[in-house]
Write a protein that binds this DNA or RNA. Structure first.
Lengths: 200, 200
DNA sequence: GCCAGAATAGTACGACCGGTCGTATCATGG
DNA sequence: CCATGATACGACCGGTCGTACTATTCTGGC
């Protein structure tokens, strides 16, 4: 791996940090250059435009999420165990982590890009639609495995599951609510309980 | 009411529109002045600083939310009826509305301000904590009225309720999911069903 | 119908924005 | 060991930002 590629990755890593707190628009070349001790122009030489940088940041965040949350779940037997692993990793992901001090970048930019048409929005929206589809497939797997009721609506389940993670980040980051994770786990257990077959 | 006050309100109204799409940081004096056909300096004379403008915008949004969502619910008999009215108005509020084309401003700025310490963040966080407390009181009212189980955790109920509204806005605005409202209603009914006393 | 004061516009400022340019330094293959 | 491309630098571009000061226009009470 050449030196240039290495530097580029260092830039993107730092850019992800910055964007997780300041957003993709709040991310500026000047602040980023200062943050890694480079000149603005030297840094910019690694990208064709600012949007190119933003896209790289977004792709890096999506990829990291896939590795951190999706892959451990996909490696777990389907049905409830897989969903539990998914939830645990997702919850851990959304905690404060040094490489993303502003919380999950993908949540941060979701509200930022939703009114800003363009390739960035398209990229994020497609990634999130794919992710939702993954959740739906996982939920359906719970039905197939016999862990969940046959009448379960997998799309609704996925909707409710993502809702929990969304509000958890909100409660933790804005409200500073120490009960956020506790509520998240309780809500997840309630979601699973409602999905279980009726035990009569 | 003097002409100045009137103009100030016109400015803030337009600023709420702009901020609902571009965020409080994306809101700039230049764009705002163009948007209402005033000079930047003439507009600025109505505020001590940009932060003063932002605070006014935030306060206006909070007040509008209170009138649109809280008051109809507070005017309804407590317990399940009140919560249903609350949910209906909240869902309607989060739809596209001309005075807030970018969706609920308070959700938009929640992720924007959560990493940006200062009076704006404090104002928003306190308003949202107050709102959560209102939800908790309403949920507790459901228990008192006998509509909900005595063991219901009101804080968890409020957490789950707000989660539904949060993900609904997300699905509608970013994913363009036409099922968002349908899922929202279904999730709300499931939340109520789980809160009801056991009918054995 | 004038005049005080409010309301708006004009002008200028320093800082920072994304981006370009020419140049210097570095790494490396021949 | 030198030539050459990769990498990074500082200076600078036109524009926009928030904000300050000044000048103009509008408006309502006498």
């Amino acid at each position: 791996m050449g030196k240039g590629t290495l530097t580029r990755e260092r830039i993107i890593g730092r850019a992800v940090e910055l964007a997780s707190t300041d957003g993709l628009n709040g991310l500026t070349l000047g602040k980023l250059a200062d943050g890694i001790g480079m000149s603005k122009s030297g840094l910019f030489a690694h990208f064709r435009s600012k949007e190119d940088l933003q896209r790289s940041v977004l792709e890096a965040a999506i990829d990291a999420f896939r590795r951190f949350v999706y892959e451990p779940a996909a490696a777990t037997p389907r049905g409830e165990p897989r969903l539990r692993v998914l939830f645990d990793h997702w919850l851990a992901w959304s905690q404060e982590r040094e490489e993303m001090p502003g919380g999950c970048l993908l949540m941060q930019v979701s509200t930022e890009l939703d009114d800003q048409p363009g390739p960035l929005r398209d990229l994020l929206a497609q990634a999130k639609r794919d992710w939702r589809q993954t959740l739906i497939v996982f939920a359906r797997g719970g039905v197939t495995a016999g862990h969940f009721r046959a009448e379960l609506d997998p799309a609704l389940f996925a909707f409710q599951l993502e809702a929990i993670l969304l509000i958890t980040g909100h409660d933790r980051r804005l409200l500073n609510d120490p009960l956020a994770s506790t509520h998240a786990r309780a809500a997840f257990e309630a979601l699973l309980a409602a999905a279980h077959p009726i035990t009569s």
